[in-house]
Design a protein around this nucleic acid. Structure first.
Lengths: 174, 174
DNA sequence: AAGTTTGTTCAATTTAAATTAAACAAACTG
DNA sequence: CAGTTTGTTTAATTTAAATTGAACAAACTT
């Protein structure tokens, strides 16, 4: 039998969310999808962004009607991205979460963890293709070899340009 | 009974693709997925990028083992993005496609059609949320109202900063 | 110790998106 | 004209991803 402690922020308070908050949940949900994150991840962030107090996992689950499994994986993703943080509240055993409001930082970490990694992967894969071309030279007609070589060189050049671009971008957002 | 015309580029030439080409197909396929495009769209582009001659839809379908339906929708997407172009070859009835190699242009159109549109949508949705807050003011406690208002203002500010950023980005890529 | 509550993990299910297959129209061929 | 070939469109299927639900471990309560 729960004690229904008074001072504990979200305990026994299943008050329905105001419309503004539901709407922002939706906005971030869609935004997440557009960035190919699970919708629920965006929804959790949207919920926390307008929360007056930190929220526990069960509260989030309740408010968004999503399973606690999804809350667990969703909060983990948001934590590793640095979009939310854990807050220990008084004597509570539960984890509480709050949104990181300094979105500037968010942009930085998102950049580092998503964009940068992808760019590096792309670079590596392109090198692999170029290696394959070298291996395969004998089996190709001279014309085809030259053509492919030129086009891959073109891609590599573009790739390099993009990479040079990155430090500039970094200076701008950091 | 087909006449198996000699001069026609890709006719009756189901020669298997060299490994380099298969690999680049794969690279672009994955890249497309990462950008939340259908994999097949990337594959088509990857195929055309190293094609010595323009390719017809049936040839693409054959080379990638995808249905002609997918080729039809995939080429349409790539055409509207400006990543490939149609080429009319001699007297042929078929459409032939070739990759647009000037990837700089591609980046520009991709920016205009994808990023820009999304940014504008986000702006509109955020305005809607702010409107909802105004509507709902009476039903919120003063503290909650102020809190939400401040946080939405924060988002709007960030949003504006992002938008200011865009012309700069445009100048860099255009 | 027995019983809660919280949070994680993973198999099973659901959902959404891409792909195919089939039906069709259009442009040609003999 | 009858028969091909090409390309588009839509319903049906397949595939991939997200979500749930159930099993479990850990930290607590009584």
């Amino acid at each position: 039998m729960a004690i229904a402690a008074q001072g504990v922020p979200g305990e026994a308070k299943p008050k329905p969310l105001p419309r503004v908050r539901l709407e922002l949940v939706d906005v971030f949900g869609r935004m997440a999808q557009a960035l190919s994150f699970p919708r629920s991840v965006g929804e959790i962030y949207g919920l926390l962004y307008l929360a007056p107090e930190p929220m526990s996992a069960p509260e989030i689950s309740e408010a968004l009607s999503i399973s606690k499994g999804s809350v667990s994986t969703g909060t983990r993703q948001l934590l590793t991205l640095g979009f939310i943080r854990k807050v220990w509240l008084q004597e509570e055993r539960k984890d509480y979460f709050e949104a990181v409001l300094e979105l500037g930082n968010m942009v930085r970490t998102a950049y580092d963890q998503i964009f940068k990694v992808r760019a590096q992967n792309a670079e590596r894969r392109l090198t692999d293709v170029t290696d394959t071309l070298a291996d395969e030279k004998a089996e190709l007609s001279p014309e085809e070899y030259v053509l492919i070589k030129e086009r891959l060189a073109r891609l590599t050049k573009l790739q390099k340009r993009g990479m040079q671009f990155m430090p500039l971008l970094e200076r701008l957002i950091k």
